[in-house]
Design a protein around this nucleic acid. Structure first.
Length: 671
DNA sequence: TAGGCCAAGATTTTC
DNA sequence: TCTTGGCCTA
């Protein structure tokens, strides 16, 4: 059997791949070939005769799930339609699609993302007459999430928000809506309250695998354990040093918990790094060794030292961008590095802008993952909200979003009246609106009643259409016409016609993507509900992977986890950015998480690492003096070379330089 | 009562 | 820089 396994796997890796019964903990250091181990392990299981439908692999991002699925397919040469590789949240949705009725929800439930959540909290606060300035919305949302998932409890300072929370919950239930936390919590509840359902799932999934285990939350762990305790064939793969999602409830102590819960486990440490040069690894080790809460491990590499890490201190973020763009161009010419082999990794999305400007100016093709996702764009959310109301008329948040977009004369007063009616009858805004258009004693004027009535009729009619098989995309196109979204956009952006055109194009792209999805022969469930479920979980990194070739990658460190690049640039390595000032405010322990983040950033690089820290930086409206990140002191000095700030190379000079270089190379002459 | 205009405030990371 | 909320006008 073993000779089916490609030779480059080392002994530990082979052990990790071939031990498929019983619990297993794999501690996989950065660059230790983790993904290969996981994909080989799955294909090994398949070869051993474990049916694909019995395997459940859980990951963190859609991207990771998709890549894992693809790799296994490549490895086995099979389609594997029954193999479950998905994110925890997507798995939660699948469970809920089948079982949510057990909790009294209907199957057309809406999934609220954080934006929807914020609008609901805001709306609820308004109803409760809470003064809006006493309310820190994101903070409240974080509190609610903490309460719901059991990470926090009410205390002296938060107690006052309790009624708001209760109200929030009852609204969610009334709207037939769930939030991201619910996608984990509700399956746990269902499994707890309905042992026969749990038994079914245990029966089905005899082999469970969890990737990025250090990022599982306490509840994801519970969910995993519920499923795994049937067979106890559960394999978790993680690295405590790369735990960077504690703000989302991730808890690397799950590794310790796993060791307690599964005392019979096999434990394997993968410590050989196949990715980076000795220099880069030494820098990473230097940094991470300052963390006190970690499992000791010694990452080593057989690779050569490689070249030193280059440090820059540009004057401001503009210079920084120019420097990075120019360096990329130089390296491409001198070392024949391809665009896609560069990764530019930032702590916060806001740092992207200056870099993008520089790349645009230099004509460097780049790809940003992160920032505003396609599905977060206003025009897209508008259209999707229309679909959501059609699917689930009880979804008040979606209703509010579309009821006056494009404007149809429904203003504040009208909405108040609809809201009042809804409260009195405890029904949705949609039903209340329907009622008020008909009622004899309606407080609404005749004009507005007619407008509302035709709006509701439109939703009704298009909703029916959208439910017909493979008819979502045509419905979207018809809808755009019917509400004259085009005319509205042109009106809204009179001064800038380009924006209007661009937004319309986005909508057409959306319609196109829906059409592709509906027509995909491998899509076994092409309905409206399943479409909406699906798009709610699509986040930033999920589109345009095809044309990612030939572009420089610009992304946050968080979204770079699991990826690697020949050459990595880390801009903005300044105190207050990494470690991030806001993160440190929350608690002291977050310093270690920030350090892990920096560690993850460094270990993405295969061959060469550039780090820069600006002296000044624009922050919102004004310019702030910056100082270098304290983490830089943790990198051994002898691994770095410092660059004085040079005059930025102008475009003409650069062109001259390249021309000269080409001449020289062409002539075969030496400098 | 709806919608336009202006000023102030704001954002760490993702499913 | 962009978004949101409040105020004013029609």
């Amino acid at each position: 059997m073993e000779n089916h396994i490609p030779s480059p796997l080392n002994d530990r890796q082979i052990e990790a791949v071939t031990t498929i019964q019983g619990p297993m903990l794999i501690i996989a250091g950065a660059g230790s070939g983790k993904t290969r181990v996981i994909t080989h392990r799955i294909s090994h299981m398949l070869r051993k005769g474990i049916p694909q439908s019995a395997i459940l692999a859980l990951t963190f991002t859609n991207k990771a799930a998709r890549e894992m699925g693809e790799r296994v397919r490549d490895l086995t040469g099979k389609k594997l339609a029954d193999l479950s590789v998905s994110t925890f949240h997507a798995f939660g949705v699948r469970v809920l699609r089948r079982t949510i009725h057990l909790l009294g929800y209907r199957e057309n439930f809406s999934i609220y993302d954080s934006g929807d959540q914020l609008s609901l909290i805001k709306e609820t606060a308004r109803e409760l007459r809470l003064s809006p300035d006493s309310l820190d919305l994101p903070g409240t949302a974080a509190l609610f999430s903490g309460i719901k998932t059991g990470r926090r409890d009410w205390d002296g300072t938060t107690e006052m928000f309790r009624p708001l929370y209760q109200e929030y919950l009852s609204h969610m239930k009334a709207y037939n809506a769930v939030d991201f936390d619910d996608l984990i919590m509700l399956p746990i509840r269902i499994f707890g309250e309905h042992p026969e359902t749990l038994a079914e799932y245990r029966q089905r999934y005899s082999h469970i695998l969890v990737d990025e285990f250090q990022d599982t939350s306490a509840n994801q762990y519970r969910l995993m354990k519920l499923l795994a305790d049937g067979s106890r064939n559960v394999c978790v793969v993680g690295d405590d040093d790369q735990s960077i999602y504690s703000w989302r409830g991730a808890n690397y102590e799950n590794i310790l918990r796993f060791e307690q819960d599964y005392p019979e486990r096999r434990e394997i440490k993968l410590e050989q790094n196949y990715r980076s040069t000795g220099t880069i690894l030494a820098a990473a080790n230097g940094v991470i060794s300052h963390n006190r809460n970690r499992k000791t491990k010694a990452l080593w590499t057989g690779s050569a030292e490689g070249r030193p890490i280059e440090m820059f201190h540009p004057e401001d973020e503009r210079r920084e961008g120019e420097f990075i763009a120019a360096t990329i161009k130089t390296l491409m010419l001198r070392e024949k590095v391809r665009y896609q082999d560069f990764g530019v990794l930032v702590r916060t999305n806001s740092l992207c802008r200056a870099l993008e400007e520089a790349f645009l100016a230099e004509g460097l093709p780049y790809r940003v993952s992160g920032g505003e996702s396609f599905f977060q764009r206003k025009e897209i959310k508008d259209i999707l909200s229309y679909l959501r109301v059609m699917a689930n008329p009880d979804d008040d948040v979606a209703f509010l979003r579309v009821v006056n977009t494009p404007r149809r004369g429904v203003g504040r007063r009208t909405l108040e009246q609809i809201g009042e009616a809804a409260r009195r009858r405890s029904c949705s805004l949609y039903s209340a609106a329907a009622l008020l258009t008909l009622a004899e004693d309606s407080p609404l004027g005749a004009g507005i009643r007619a407008d509302l009535a035709s709006f509701l009729a439109l939703l009704e009619e298009q909703g029916k259409a959208a439910r017909r098989p493979r008819n979502i995309a045509p419905t979207v196109r018809r809808l755009v016409e019917a509400v004259d979204y085009r005319g509205w956009l042109h009106g809204e952006f009179q001064k800038n016609d380009k924006i209007a055109k661009w937004k319309l194009r986005n909508i057409e792209l959306l319609a196109q993507s829906i059409e592709d999805w509906e027509k995909d022969p491998e899509n076994f469930e092409p309905g409206l509900y399943s479409y909406l479920n699906r798009v709610s979980l699509i986040s930033r990194d999920d589109i345009d992977d095809e044309d990612g070739k030939g572009r420089v990658n610009l992304m946050t460190i968080h979204s770079a986890k699991g990826l690697e690049f020949e050459i990595v640039f880390l801009p903005g390595v300044e105190d207050g950015i990494i470690p991030h000032a806001r993160a440190l405010e929350e608690s002291e322990g977050d310093m270690e998480e920030e350090r892990r983040l920096f560690y993850v950033a460094i270990t993405r690089a295969r061959r060469k690492l550039y780090i820069s820290a600006c002296r000044k930086r624009r922050v919102m409206r004004d310019v702030a003096e910056m100082s270098p990140s304290p983490f830089l002191d943790e990198i051994p000095r002898d691994l770095m070379v410092f660059h004085q700030e040079e005059e930025p190379v102008s475009r003409e000079e650069a062109t001259d330089y390249f021309a000269a270089l080409k001449n020289r190379l062409g002539a075969g002459a030496r400098p």
